[in-house]
Design a protein around this nucleic acid. Sequence first.
DNA 1: ACTTTTCGACTGACCGGTCGGTCAAAATAT
DNA 2: ATATTTTGACCGACCGGTCAGTCGAAAAGT
Lengths: 205, 205
Amino acid sequence: MQLPENKQLKENKKNLIIEAASKVFAEKGFSGASIADIAAYAGIGKGTTYEYFDSKEDLFFAVFEWHVEQSSQAATVNITALGGPASDRLSAMNESLMNYFVDKMDIFSLVMEFWAASASSKSREHYKQAFKDTYREFRGIVSSLIQDGIERGEFRSDVDVAAISAGIVGTWDAMFLQGWFDESFDIADTGKKCMAIFLKGLSIK
Amino acid sequence: MQLPENKQLKENKKNLIIEAASKVFAEKGFSGASIADIAAYAGIGKGTTYEYFDSKEDLFFAVFEWHVEQSSQAATVNITALGGPASDRLSAMNESLMNYFVDKMDIFSLVMEFWAASASSKSREHYKQAFKDTYREFRGIVSSLIQDGIERGEFRSDVDVAAISAGIVGTWDAMFLQGWFDESFDIADTGKKCMAIFLKGLSIK
DNA sequence: ACTTTTCGACTGACCGGTCGGTCAAAATAT
DNA sequence: ATATTTTGACCGACCGGTCAGTCGAAAAGT
C-alpha cells in the first residue's frame, strides 16, 4: 500500500511543522512569529510550509486544535475508568490537569494567544466556537461526576450543578493565570485547596 | 494660570487618544490596529499621536494602565465604607465587579490582548509585573475581608486564606472567560452561585 | 524520463515612525 | 489698539523595513 504510507509521511511532516510552529508561536506570539522562523526551526524551506498549510492563520489554527486535543486527553485520562467516590475522581481530574500544565507551563503563553485570537483574529468566530465546545465538554465531565456524587448520596442535592462545574473548570484557568504572572504562586497547591473548598461546599455535611 | 490650563488640554487630548485606541485595539487587536486607524478614529492626524506617545507599544501600555485603574476602582467602590458582615461585603464586591464587566463586555477582548502581551510583547515583563501587582492587590482585598470574617467569628479559622482568595479572584476571570465564549452562559448568576459555594465552605457551619 | 516535493529569491502590500511645512493664537513691540 | 514676531500643536506625505505568500527551478523519488 503506497497511498497510506504516503499519507503517513505527509502526516508526519505536518506534525513536525505544527510542533515547530507551536514552539515559535509560544515564544513570539502569532504576529511576532514569521513563517520563515517557523520553517527554519522545523529545518525545512519556507515554501514547503505552504504545501501543508494554506496560510499562517491556517497553521495557527492547526496548532490550536492540536493543543485542544492534548489537554482534552490529559483531562480524561485516569478518570473515566476509576470507579471510587466522586470526590476522589474530581480530585484526580484536578491533579491530572494541574500536572499536565505545570509540566508545560511554557505553552501557557500559547493559550493566551489563542484567547486573543478569539477576540481579534480574522477567524475569531472559529476560535470562539472551538473554545465554547471545549469548555462545555469540560463542564460536562465535571457535571457528570458531581451528578454521580449526588446520586450516590455523597453530595448535597440542592446545589446548582452547572454553576459549580463552571466554577471548578474556571479555577483551572484561574490558577494558571495567576501562576503565570507570579512565580511565587503555587499553582498545584492552591488548586488543590480550591478544589477542597468546592468539595466541602458540596459535601452532604 | 496658563500652564495648568495648557497641561489640562494636553491631558484631555491624551485621554481622547487613549479612548480611541482602546476602541480600535479592542476591535482589531494590537497587531491588527494601525496607528492610522486610531488617529482617524480619534479625528486627529497620524503624526499627532506621536506628540503624545513615543510608540505604538507605549500607547498600548497606556491603554492597559487606564483599564487597570478603572477596574481597580470598580472593585473597591461600595466596599471599603460598608461595615456589615464580611460575607455581605464579599458578595457586594463580587456583584460590583460582575456588573462593571458585564456592562462593558466589549472591552474584555482587550483583557485578552493584555494577557497575550504579557506573554509575547516586547515589554512582556512590564505587563507581567503590572498584572502580578494587580492580582496581588485584589487577593489582598479579599484576604482582608476573609480575615475580618474569621476574627468576627463568622468564618472558620482553619482555612487557607491566601488560597481561597486566589480562588475567589480567579473566579472573576473564569466567569468572564466562559461568558466570552458562550453567549448563553449567565456570568452574573453563575458568579453569584460560585461565591455562595465559597462562602458556604468558609462558613463556621 | 518524468513526477513529486522542496526550496528560497522575489514581489507587493502594509505600516510604524519621521520630518519639514502650516497656521492660529499667544507674546511682544510699537 | 494694532502690527509683528514667536511658538508649538498639528498634519500627512514619505521612507525604510518587514513579511505573507508566489513561483520557477532544482533536487529527490520512482
